[in-house]
Write a protein that binds this DNA or RNA. Structure first.
Lengths: 247, 247
DNA sequence: TCTATTCTTTGACCCAGATCAACTGAGGTT
DNA sequence: AACCTCAGTTGATCTGGGTCAAAGAATAGA
């Protein structure tokens, strides 16, 4: 999951490692090579894609839907450690076991590559290794930004942070530019939000109600969110770093 | 900062990107090339190595001492997002700005490479890009493991987690193997520990005292720690994943 | 030796968020 | 329509860790 980078989906649908921005780098020979080892898999909402510790025979990227990475303690406490949106990469070239559970939050289509051939291709095509390094550095930045959220922010700030991130990454919004109102459907249940934010679902619910009451967000039903003023929301998130999202 | 990987320092002191394990991969031509663009810098404890947002002209790795990565909000709340121990890499090839402050916690010696030539060399030497990808994936795993600590663990568990990590990465210990008692000096002040764990320094102090009272750790002075039973400490940390550290 | 200064510990009290519990409301099934 | 079930809301109460305050302990300097 990347916080810094915006995505323009829909382009470059055959790209081996889907680019976050409009793809300007596709190289035909790369694609042709990959075509042979590429396949698609569908997962239903709630289904586990990979169990932590399992041997992973593939790497891949999310084509549609949303998946989440979670870690769980023996006593059941769970923490979401990443959100995989379309174009995000899954898997660890050079690693055998998965480090955390990957679960489909909505229905998910993944574009997979068998790991061995993918790794061999990485050897031959430095381009891909570079792209992967770049993406991994993005994820690392995002993970570290999230550490600040988890460690130091209040419940209200946490909710605002999550809403900003989802708003930023969801393309179906801001018909009037990034400073206009934003409209989107939350792809997460209150429980999933809680797991992401290190809160309980009750606290999430209460803070959502509070933000609604204060006019920071509007809610239709449980999932449909309107953000009348993105800047206001970002203030609530206490975020200095907006990744250049707003002017 | 890596949680999973152990380091055996002292080997391979000229290696461009120092390996965490005993180095079996040094290649002479690589070294010779790097020698030209390599230089050393010293920092005193407390000194800032890089300010968040600054343009970074170099990448490098920690040779000795300990540095920390921190993020700070406008109101002063700070969260440490990474701990850099000897052999850890600093910098983001392909990125211009630093994403967070890097501060010397103790006196630090860094081995630096000017960024441009380093990146050019990365182009020519896929080996290095792979190594860097591997290291970045390790950091990502560590960051995500830390998200569980920050989001879901109690203060006591947090302290125990931090102590395990420091113990695991400190080489000057376990004269009687990994199941014997461990002895080391904490490289962090109580405040730094608090910033790492998302706590206040008072809570850190109280929990250290509690762990001491309960015999989980022994303290001589403020910094010198003995862990009579590593397994006991890991139980206190609530960690299922010990990274294969103990049998 | 006698301060300063910096780091740490400990105590008293408070509050944000957890916990426990009841309730609402939208689908879906029969 | 009657009944589930699942997701979310809201209330009442409790508590872990924060906050404020004061007092050691170690080191450096004069």
């Amino acid at each position: 999951m990347s916080v810094q980078t915006q995505m323009t989906p829909g382009n470059c649908s055959d790209c081996p490692i889907r680019h976050r921005a409009v793809c300007a780098r596709c190289e035909v020979d790369e694609l042709n090579e990959l075509e042979e080892i590429k396949y698609y898999r569908n997962f239903e909402a709630g289904q586990t894609i990979i169990w932590s510790g399992d041997k992973m025979g593939f790497v891949g990227s999310v084509v549609s839907g949303i998946a989440s990475l979670t870690q769980t303690m023996e006593d059941g406490r769970t923490q979401m450690v990443g959100l995989l949106l379309p174009s995000d990469f899954v898997g660890r070239p050079g690693r055998d076991g998965a480090a955390y559970d990957v679960t489909a939050t909505t229905d998910v289509v993944m574009c997979c590559f068998r790991k061995k051939p993918f790794e061999e291709m990485m050897e031959r095509t430095p381009h891909i290794a570079h792209r992967l390094l770049e993406m991994t550095l993005d994820e690392l930045d995002a993970a570290r930004e999230w550490m600040l959220v988890l460690g130091r922010k209040t419940a209200r700030e946490k909710i605002a942070s999550l809403l900003s991130i989802v708003a930023r990454r969801d393309a179906s919004l801001s018909p009037n530019g990034p400073s206009g109102p934003m409209v989107f459907d939350l792809p997460l249940t209150r429980e999933a939000m809680a797991d992401y934010l290190g809160l309980t679902l009750e606290t999430v619910s209460r803070q959502m109600s509070a933000l609604k009451k204060d006019g920071v967000i509007q809610l239709e039903g449980k999932r449909h969110v309107t953000i009348p003023d993105m800047r206001r929301l970002m203030d609530e998130a206490g975020d200095d770093a907006d990744g250049g999202f707003l002017g």
